[in-house]
């Protein structure tokens, strides 16, 4: 379970998170919606300890992330797969080596036969041909890099997966494949996921609950049907794109 309690974070004068409270149950998929620049990615990075909140606490599996020592934090991170917005592939390594690094169990990491099999399996899961494993990241398109990033995140069979805009920049077919993959991970392996996204359609299809983060706070949270009917003005504005354009 992931518990986020009164988490605040500011960068200089800009308050990004202002007392965020959120709990994600085991096996749940939560979609975190919100306008750009409202701290959704910051919240994901805080969960994995890449950013330290100014106030509040984040507890994963009963462990306070900010209080964990180096080794314990590495162990916790090994249970969490993180899908970066732009893939964040290591450009000095080929696709296989990138995915192999996702094998957080050292025995599996050192077993090259298993590593090759697992890399091929993960590539197929994200609709990529296993032959891609020999390519360098620079030889891949943006969408392919993103999918390799997802393959790397799930290679170690993590308990949690944090997705930072998993389907942005993907064509509709591949977006649907990633949505289906998230559903399979939840249904077959009981993976707990938090998905930061702007893809409203996809989040309604895959998430158990949807939250809207705006103004540094979670202003609405609930199951998709409930969220769709919410009367919270920010939710209505977000779903109906109810904004005024400034005159040219």
């Amino acid at each position: 379970m992931i518990e986020i309690r009164h988490v605040s974070k500011r960068f200089g004068a800009q308050v990004v998170l202002d007392g965020v409270d959120l709990t994600v149950q085991d096996g749940e998929t939560l979609a975190l919606l919100g306008p750009s620049g409202t701290g959704k990615s910051v919240l994901l990075k805080a969960i994995i300890g890449l950013i330290r909140p100014d106030r509040g606490e984040i507890i994963v599996d009963g462990q306070h992330v900010a209080k964990l020592k180096h080794g314990a934090l590495s162990k916790l991170r090994a249970t969490i797969g993180y899908v970066f917005q732009n893939g964040a592939l290591f450009d000095s390594m080929d696709v296989f080596e990138n995915i192999r690094l996702g094998l957080t169990d050292e025995q599996q990491f050192n077993d090259m036969t298993y590593a090759h099999e697992r890399a091929s399996e993960c590539l197929r899961l994200v609709n990529l041909n296993p032959d891609v494993s020999k390519k360098m990241p620079a030889d891949l398109s943006g969408g392919m890099r993103k999918r390799v990033g997802i393959a790397r995140a799930i290679a170690g069979k993590p308990k949690y997966v944090l997705y930072d805009e998993p389907t942005s920049g993907l064509d509709p077919v591949n977006s649907d494949i990633i949505d289906a993959l998230m559903t399979r991970l939840k249904d077959e392996l009981g993976v707990t996921s938090i998905m930061v996204t702007h893809d409203v359609r996809g989040s309604f299809r895959t998430a158990d609950r949807i939250a809207l983060l705006t103004g540094g706070k979670i202003v609405a949270i609930g199951p998709p049907d409930e969220f769709k009917e919410s009367e919270v003005p920010e939710v209505r504005a977000f779903l109906e794109r109810d904004f005024d354009l400034a005159p040219l």
Binding site: K45, I48, G49, L50, H70, S74, K75, L76, R77, A78, I80, Y82, F84, Q85, N86, A88, L89, F90, D91, L101, G102, T104, R152, G156
Partner: peptide, 17 residues
């Protein structure tokens, strides 16, 4: 470049130093 393209964050997120 690795820092601004989040490659270092990615390495940390995989539990690697």
């Amino acid at each position: 470049t690795m820092r601004v393209t989040e490659q270092i964050d990615a390495l940390e997120s995989l539990g690697r130093a």
